[in-house]
Design a binder for these strands. Sequence first.
DNA 1: TTGCCGTCCGACCGATCGGTCGTCTAAGGT
DNA 2: ACCTTAGACGACCGATCGGTCGGACGGCAA
Lengths: 211, 211
Amino acid sequence: MLPTSREKILDVAEARFAQRGYAGVGLREVADAAGLGKSSLFHHFPTKAALYGAVLDRVIERIEQRMRPALEPGGDPREQLSAAVVALIDTLAEDPPAARLLLRTVFEDDDLSPTEAPELMASEQRLDALIARIARVITDGVASGAFRPISAPDAIQTLIGAVVFPFASGEFGEKLAGEIFSAEAIARRKREVLALIQFGWMRPHSQGDPS
Amino acid sequence: MLPTSREKILDVAEARFAQRGYAGVGLREVADAAGLGKSSLFHHFPTKAALYGAVLDRVIERIEQRMRPALEPGGDPREQLSAAVVALIDTLAEDPPAARLLLRTVFEDDDLSPTEAPELMASEQRLDALIARIARVITDGVASGAFRPISAPDAIQTLIGAVVFPFASGEFGEKLAGEIFSAEAIARRKREVLALIQFGWMRPHSQGDPS
DNA sequence: TTGCCGTCCGACCGATCGGTCGTCTAAGGT
DNA sequence: ACCTTAGACGACCGATCGGTCGGACGGCAA
């Protein structure tokens, strides 16, 4: 039950990177919070960027695992998309720092570009594959008539903004709508996004595949 | 036409803070890019936090000015909300670093909390007032029957995510949907969000105020 | 017992951080 | 002609940054 040092480091680093960002977190701070000396970190991760990469990879893997069953090919695109969104929301809700970490990572395309931090390439590819699968579900749905003729990339941008941002909004979001990670707030977010998908993207009064 | 040193500093700092975040930007970097020595910055802004505050304030003021006419009390809430969103998108599109700066600021609720950086209080209050006005439009619309019974705070979270995030998504967004700030991309974003409001939130086949 | 190995540590490195200080210069008012 | 003032500058400060290094400790296999 007691976590290994490596896991402890990852847990602490995930929370700190989410709160203060890559440049804002010192390795000393992480080491202290993990109950280790700073130099001990380097026995588990060769560089700060590698530590960040490991943290990010763990988060993306969790999300991928939870969303995978919903996205398996061959099903009703409407149900696939809805189930995928619910799975994503559940995963973000169980790992509070995750949402903010993901959005911060998107914003750090300078310092954390895969060119400079090759340890992030694997994570990026996995995320790309996941997004491609979602895009596929949307384009399939449009092709079958289940969805209006929406643009998959734009729909995905909207989806990320509407799903991930609220769980990353911290004090701002709490002042606006109360506790972010309460069961009620999570349920409200699901309703909000599912309604968006249903009324905004699904074709009304259509039973879908016209074949 | 040639900008004053102060304006030059603000322009450079806005771009840098948006790209690398508060902790990730050194004052030396800002000074160099502005064509000044580092110590000259302190003749215009007493601390780094004050500089960030001035940058943020300028961004929020621009947004507020552009959205104000759309939000003046007494009008059709549907038109008010749509016009406000269009105004916001236009403003973000004209000032590319703005969206990312705003979201980053939301995420920095630790280091940049108004308690520690009192120069941000004014900006925060102005932003709160702006959001309150939007919330008012939504609740009015719900009361008059123009909107479904949606929750204003949740709707605002969705709106921020769907409007602001895409313009802050940088390389990630460009890989997904091409140039973010092209005229076509801006038009697509407007269509996307306006459709969301219309189909997702407006009551169908209703002419609104039943009085 | 011996030797190895994974883990951890304190001391240290050069670089950079935000910020201070004293000085110099150019413009403007009297 | 004089003095004030704003703006800019280089030198410098203590603190912290990511990262290195040599060694100490404990478990385990031979």
